[in-house]
């Protein structure tokens, strides 16, 4: 191949005829194409475009808080597969729904409530076909007109959603501070009341965060995590390792300041053991952290030991559940 044609093409000066010549040459063999790709990569990495307009960093630097943008619903239609994770949201108090929803949907009085007790992961299929996996200690509520296209629900806790595609009816997950709106696809939300903060992590696709008035606050791109604390005025957005935020689906259970006595009850169920708490006050100690449910019991106890005053002794018994003393 005449390199002057390649050069002209790289410099953006090739005529259509020369371009055709080049592409014909590329088609001739895999090694031709390989050669061109390598050249092009060197060209791209050694490429400099003079900053003739003199654009400076202060010209493009974003303002600290992301400005609220109002996008049309159609804008979201183009977006596909979405995984989202919202971590922690503020206390819910007595009212479960943001003002918007109350105004728009007075029928919320007839509600369905699904609760996944502490220590359990619960799978649910919603009336529209959406699959929801609720993490430990999570509650979702939706009105019974959900079936008729009002795809809104309220979440307290953490859940993974695989949303049934329906471009006409947006799927909205509300919580105290922020909401999320999608049209189909999968995302994960965590919104525990005690944190007074809210985090959303997007793994794939695109997602819109809504304020309590239902207006779009910002959009996330894959790999981004949005964090909003009640005490702050801005939403912090950054790249994260998203796998970390979906690991609970793989059998991880997160305890958020739960009493050891309650945790003991769950462990008794999971492992078919009997736990006797001997030490005064130990049952009232609180544990905050994540444990892997399908690990051997001694590993779980070792993890609990790290942040509590727990000591234990396991006594295997024949024909009866093993006995474990917590002391």
């Amino acid at each position: 191949m005449d390199y002057t044609i390649i050069q002209k093409y790289l410099q953006g000066k090739a005529s259509n005829k020369e371009k055709e010549q080049l592409f014909n040459w590329l088609d001739e063999s895999a090694s031709n194409k390989e050669e061109y790709i390598e050249i092009k990569k060197i060209w791209a990495l050694t490429s400099r475009e003079k900053n003739v307009e003199g654009k400076t960093w202060s010209d493009i630097k974003p303002s600290e808080s992301k400005p609220a943008k109002t996008k049309t619903l159609q804008h979201w239609l183009a977006r596909a597969a979405i995984f989202l994770l919202l971590i922690s949201c503020g206390a819910i108090g007595s009212h479960f729904f943001s003002k918007t929803i109350e105004n728009e949907s007075p029928v919320y009085s007839q509600m369905c409530t699904i609760i996944s007790p502490a220590g359990q992961i619960t799978n649910v299929k919603l009336p529209d076909g959406t699959l929801v996996m609720l993490n430990s200690g999570t509650k979702i509520q939706y009105s019974n007109d959900f079936t008729y296209g009002n795809r809104q629900l309220y979440l307290e806790g953490e859940a993974f959603f695989d949303v049934q595609k329906d471009v006409e009816h947006p799927f909205i997950v509300n919580s105290e501070f922020l909401g999320v709106k999608v049209y189909g696809t999968s995302f994960n939300i965590q919104a525990y009341p005690e944190d007074r903060a809210y985090t959303a992590t997007l793994i794939e696709g695109s997602i819109s965060l809504l304020n309590t008035s239902g207006e779009e606050v910002t959009k996330l791109v894959p790999g981004e995590k949005a964090y909003f604390a009640e005490s702050e005025t801005r939403i912090d957005i950054r790249y994260v390792d998203t796998e970390m935020y979906t690991s609970w689906k793989e059998g991880l259970v997160t305890y958020r300041n739960e009493r050891l006595e309650d945790i003991a009850k769950q462990i008794e169920r999971w492992y078919n053991v009997e736990i006797i708490i001997q030490k005064e006050g130990l049952g009232d100690e609180r544990y905050f952290g994540t444990i892997l449910k399908n690990k051997p019991i001694d590993q779980i106890l070792e993890v609990l030991k790290l942040t509590t005053s727990l000591e234990y002794e396991i006594i295997p018994r024949a024909n009866e559940p093993s006995l474990i003393y917590w002391k």
Binding site: L10, A44, L45, S47, R48, E49, K50, N51, K55
Partner: peptide, 11 residues
């Protein structure tokens, strides 16, 4: 800046 713009313009 110039190298990243240069890179993008190649594609």
């Amino acid at each position: 800046y110039e190298r990243i713009v240069g890179f993008c313009m190649q594609f």
